[in-house]
Nucleic acid binder design. Structure first.
Lengths: 145, 145
DNA sequence: TGATTAGTACTACCTAGGTAGTATTCGACT
DNA sequence: AGTCGAATACTACCTAGGTAGTACTAATCA
């Protein structure tokens, strides 16, 4: 059969690199290398190679300053995180986000204050449901007419 | 550096195969092949090869009946799903399950009744928090004499 | 009994992430 | 100007998922 749909989600190292770039808006190979040194002792070329692959993949881009590449993300953190979550929801819960939240709520670890904020959030969703408000047009009070 | 920790999570095809086995408790290559035919037209050998790899990986095992292998899962669905979720929580949310639930609650799709049951679940967690009950010893009312 | 068929084994590729060595080049410093 | 170091390019492997062809074997059926 066909070569299986291209998995969009970045791997571990890619995520770690993106994480640094997201935090600093821009980063050089050397900077990423230094930043990741405590976690994993990688050769600088490993970072460079991976950044090249990530650029080919559309995750980052770069500009040149002298002969140094300065990388910048082309994807946003929330976007990538959401994609990863969506992927698991689709693959492990048949697309039912509620099922995943259920599992998390049942088996996950939560601080008391985290539970509180989740309650607020859920209350918001429930309020939207009860008023028929989707929240999508919240900044457009006079939508129709 | 070292060859990067072995990712435990099964791939797409592996999940699809496991799904069938979970549903039927046991399955032959032919059965899985037929079951997946509508979704993806794969050669029977593809299923067989993958099942062999999955067995090597400890996801399934088999017994022999005649010359036919009858596969059985060695991992449970909830276990695998939980691992997949945990993986994303760790990788994308620094281990904070609440952050992922927040994102889901904010951006996910939920049916009204799903929201209700989530509310109940959250209420349970909140109740446990307020009574100091972990839920682990719920069937042992007289815990500390 | 011989041919067909069903089933597994073996082998072979491809892709993508991950890891790193070697080569080349450009800029800076002495 | 010549050397040294930093930075990228190129190449090479390894692993794992995914996909499938070919070979071998055993059961069944005419």
């Amino acid at each position: 059969m066909t070569p299986a749909k291209p998995r969009k989600n970045p791997g571990d190292l890619q995520l770690a690199i993106l994480d640094h770039i997201w935090q600093h808006r821009e980063a050089t190979v050397a900077a990423v290398h230094r930043a990741l040194w405590d976690e994993r002792q990688l050769a600088p070329t490993t970072i460079a190679t991976m950044l090249t692959k990530m650029e080919k993949r559309g995750l980052v881009t770069h500009r040149t300053e002298g002969r140094t590449y300065i990388y910048r993300a082309l994807v946003e953190r929330t976007e990538v995180c959401f994609d990863m979550v969506t992927d698991v929801v689709d693959r492990a819960f048949e697309g039912r986000a509620a099922d995943m939240v259920s599992m998390l709520l049942r088996e996950g670890e939560f601080d008391p204050d985290e539970l509180d904020s989740l309650r607020s959030l859920l209350a918001e969703r429930l309020a939207q449901r009860d008023t028929g408000d989707t929240g999508a047009a919240a900044d457009d009070p006079e939508g129709e007419s």
